[in-house]
Computed example of a mutant assay.
Amino acid sequence: MSDAARPGDADPERTADAAADAVDAPSDETGAPASTSEMLGAALGGAARRAGLDPADGRSTGHVVWKAMGGWRGILESVLPGVVFLVAWTLTYDADTRSGNLLLSLGLSVGLAAVFTVVRLVQRQSASAAIGGLIAAAAAAALSLWTGRGEDSFIPGFLTNTIYGTAFLVSALVGWPLIGLAVGFLMGEGTAWRADRRKRRVFFWLSLAWAALFALRLIVQLPLYFAGDVTALGTLKLVMGLPLFAPLVAVTWLAVRALYPRAPK
């Protein structure tokens, strides 16, 4: 099937595929400089490797997804502070003021994140993710306490989703999808994947899928923020967190493994 657009051809999939070829095709005149792309690929690939997302490892999909979520400890560290905030807010909610006990809810949530961080430090385990989560939780709490609005504690999350979503979208549209840069580093081929039409397409669509995930969170959650519905906002943040992250990690892993099949022993 030809990828060139034909007069009267209204097939959206064919049009999108042609767009993917157009933006991802190798070019000597456009695109990121090799040194920049290699540095970015090394940074992304290193982060993916530390998260257990190395296609060269030969791990099962289930193992990879579990490792990416951090196992039981990572899941608890990611979910429990939000659950504690939501429960405390709901239990102390006053229908007259349409607000819960903000100080108590935030204090319990940030306190729990601090406990997780201290435990990792005492056990001399990698605490970078826990420390990052603690800083983010503290910043969100500080902002919310400053404004006196519980919904403002979700603003840092909105900013994070906006930045990540924009990065994935723009990288795909300019022909240097972030997924491809990371995988190229992990598989030791740098940016050579850009000469392979199949890989370009897969990395293009995977990057768009990740951009769509971050955009979906914003589309669903922002109206609740403006409505001041903290309970619904907190619930949907949890629902649209790991439950959506894990399947997309699995899809990404399977797609990349299909592109780089293991050599028979």
Rank of each mutant, 00 (worst) to 15 (best):
W72A: 12
V122C: 08
G165Y: 13
D94W: 08
E151A: 15
A232V: 02
G148H: 11
I219S: 01
L216W: 06
V115F: 03
L102D: 09
P247E: 08
A10Q: 05
R200T: 11
V118N: 11
P26L: 11
L145Y: 11
D21P: 00
A167N: 05
G71Y: 05
D21Q: 08
V170M: 09
A137W: 04
I179R: 04
I135P: 08
D3P: 01
V239W: 12
L173W: 07
Q125Y: 04
V23G: 10
P261I: 13
H63R: 09
F203Y: 15
V239P: 04
G133N: 04
G31V: 06
S144M: 01
L103V: 08
Y164S: 08
R201W: 12
L91K: 09
L248R: 04
T92I: 01
G46F: 10
T235P: 00
G100P: 04
L76Y: 04
G70Q: 10
M240F: 06
P247W: 10
E13H: 06
A211D: 09
A51D: 13
R6V: 10
D229G: 13
D11Q: 04
V84H: 11
A139Q: 01
A192E: 14
V119C: 00
A130Y: 05
L91Q: 15
A263D: 15
A246P: 03
D196F: 08
W253Y: 15
V230C: 12
S171W: 03
V84A: 14
F245I: 09
F116C: 03
R262N: 04
G165I: 05
V79L: 06
A232T: 01
G45Q: 11
L91E: 09
T61S: 11
A48K: 04
A42Q: 07
A113L: 01
W210E: 03
A114Q: 07
V220C: 04
P55K: 13
L121R: 15
L173D: 09
E151F: 03
D11E: 06
V115D: 01
R120D: 14
T97R: 12
G74K: 02
A129L: 02
M240K: 04
I135F: 14
A140W: 07
A18R: 15
D3E: 10
A137V: 02
L86Y: 15
G241H: 12
L242G: 01
F168A: 05
G132F: 11
G132N: 15
A88W: 12
F154K: 05
G58V: 01
L213F: 14
V174N: 12
M240R: 06
